[in-house]
Amino acid sequence: MVETVAPSQAARRHRRIRSGGATGLSASSGIGLGVAVIWFSVLALIPLIAVLVETSTGGWSAFWATLTDVQTAAAIRLTITQALLVTGVNVVMGTLIAWVLVRDHFFGKRALEVIIDIPFALPTIVAGLVLLSLYGPRSPVGVNVANTRAAVFMAFLFVTLPFVVRTVQPVLAELDRDVEEAAASLGASRPVIFRRVILPALFPAICAGAALSFARAISEYGSLVLLSGNLPLRTEVTSVRILTYLENGNTASAAAVATVLLGVSLLVIVALDLVQRRVARRG
């Protein structure tokens, strides 16, 4: 198709009929959009751009020097390793929890629904304190992970609990059971049905949940303050590194590490968008 300005604008309007009555902007909605975009820019976009600009002022060599600093590199390595581990656990456990919530019925299921959302709403500092009271020095079960890498793992696991569950659950609930029954009537065993029929349908949702959970884990800060001890080279995570740089007045280095985190966040968003588009295409 030959693309000029007019046809592309026209093509956009063509979508109007399909998208259920959405229209072009009128004067008042245009003003509304302007105000909303300005606020969004003032609140989020300009500050985030400032992080990138601050990073670039030192140039590539300063950026690289910050990231390869022994303590910073150790923090990034620890954060990414633990985040990956936690995401792996979430993929398995999150899918399992979603499965039980959708397919099983038992007394107290609604209580479980509430429990799953708690990590999302609980203040992170409280989350740290909460974990410390069961897995800290005064643990009633005699497990003490405080100030170890296991503490980082625990904290990540706690705060990322809802993501895979909440993305997989609705998809699983919508899944057409006739397809499973058709597979069963064709002689497929339950493991085969799960692997060949259910899992492919859940795959995009699991990916989306995993991405969200990874992004949440690498950016975690509050729950680690009381739990991990922030020991340099041992339990210090990326967010804490940023804060330390900032407190020492080294904003360029703080921005450099923040840029890495932002890059990962952006990647996650792009990945999510792609996955969602794939799902939308499949209808």
């Binding site: 500050p47 400032a50 950016s219």
Partner: peptide, 13 residues
């Protein structure tokens, strides 16, 4: 998906 620490830093900048 942005770390709260990054949010703080960005606003300070």
């Amino acid at each position: 998906s942005v770390s709260p620490v990054v949010v703080g830093l960005a606003l300070v900048l």
